[in-house]
Design a protein around this nucleic acid. Structure first.
Lengths: 152, 152
DNA sequence: TATTGTTATACTCTATAACTATA
DNA sequence: TATAGTTATAGAGTATAACAATA
């Protein structure tokens, strides 16, 4: 009766998600760190490489789950390292146009194979079916459960 | 062929986990913020409340996925707010003994019901079976895939 | 010597607000 | 006035190393 009405900590969904994410990231951090790339910088480069063309800062923010100010500084850093290009949109001078460049692609090409090798290992550990099911459930959570504005 | 050998960003497992976690946390952040509790502080309080008795700093670090230095400062803050007690283990003067106190339990009792209400809503959105399956898969990932020391 | 925990330090990200330039 | 992005600022966590106290 002294216990508050809360589920066991082990059944905390955010915690379970965090724990899984940490386990997965422990596979990738070493070689990101070796190339002096933070997780968030990596997300930006991945999003850019994945896009067909350049992206605006807003689009990038949405795809990488980074806030504007964080992203702004990250872009400055990546630009200084010669990994991406920044320009101004021809049709709207407010809008920036970010694209990965040769240096960025070269870094991705360097890291990519190691990353994919790890993915294959992870897939072996879990089983392809389980992994696919996990992706489905995660997508379901992301779309079904996002709900900021609500009371109690 | 200019594309590096990397899976689509949307199939990045860390990203999928992060996105799901953000969606879930968006449900809890508002009332944590209202009580002036950060995510990490909340994790510490939850872990303490969940334990049968006091925990050492190391045990807490393991259960909350926080590093020692972060945890140390968080504990200082929570102690100053009167939410937990710190003492020294009687059998080993090096070891600290952390326990949630009346103030901490009172805060948990205040937040708990709102948190649980949210969980029920989340469960409705996903379906109980899906949610259970998700927990299973997350646990599987956490145990099967954690692997820091490895090359390539 | 090894272990527990704290302190020091540097860096990064989060979060909100204010600001600039453009529309 | 509204929008896109940057800059300012404060706060907090991450990560590594160094340290004190104890074992």
């Amino acid at each position: 009766m002294s216990k508050p009405p809360l589920r066991p900590f082990a059944l905390s969904l955010p915690m379970a998600l965090l724990k899984a994410r940490e386990a997965v990231m422990s596979n990738f951090r070493p070689f990101l760190a070796a190339e002096d790339v933070t997780e968030q910088q990596w997300r930006v480069l991945r999003a850019l490489a994945d896009a067909d063309g350049p992206l605006s800062v807003s689009q990038l923010a949405e795809r990488t789950l980074l806030l504007g100010p964080s992203l702004s500084r990250i872009l400055t850093g990546l630009e200084a390292r010669g990994l991406l290009d920044r320009a101004t949109a021809s049709d709207d001078a407010r809008r920036a146009v970010i694209s990965i460049n040769r240096g960025g692609r070269s870094l991705l090409a360097k890291i990519g194979p190691r990353s994919e090798a790890r993915y294959r290992w992870i897939e072996e550990q879990l089983g392809a079916g389980e992994l696919a099911r996990l992706y489905e459930l995660l997508a379901l959570v992301a779309e079904a459960v996002a709900d900021p504005g609500r009371d109690s």
